[in-house]
Amino acid sequence: MEAIVDFALLAGLAAWAVAIVRLRSLFGAAMLFGIYSLHCALIFVVLDAVDVAFTEAAVGAGISTVLILGTLAITGIKLEVRHTRALIPLLITGTIGAALIYASVDMPLVGDPNAPANLHIVPDYIEGSATEIGIPNVVTSVLASYRGYDTLGEVTVIFTAGVGVLCLLGRGKPKRSRKPRG
């Protein structure tokens, strides 16, 4: 049952992606991307990643869609996308995709409890979360305690990206020196 739900959701996600590729309207693509992200969140729930699903639903369907629409409001919302000639890119992506699928045959099956990724260090985290840290949510204890440096780095990246946007777009206050072009 779980596998059927997984198949159906993933096939739907691929359909959204193809729709985004084919769509010429930029506004439509932005809205479809919001739906795509919410759909992604559903898949994360099926794959047991509830914390990730939470974040993806709030970020993908909420904030990043709002930011793309905000950019469209500045650059003009009625833009149509032009595509260049598609034959060579189609060949390139087709070849890379085929190579990746060929490579995936050697990967451990999805859900294999004995896959290398599931055997190294992770059992220690799950056990230690109960004994050393004492909180039930293993994701929180790995995020905040076992990999605290990692998270500090990520928060710094977020802060720096915010500072970068403020440098590029100003602090939202009108500048006296900036004349309207005309």
């Binding site: 905000g70 500045i74 928060v155 946007v165 206050k173 009108p174």
Partner: peptide, 24 residues
Amino acid sequence: GVGITVAFVMVSLFYAFAGYRQAD
């Protein structure tokens, strides 16, 4: 700390994009 930074960076991103049009 993570929550405060993430929440207010998101808001400041929105302010930057939404305020840019009116300012410029």
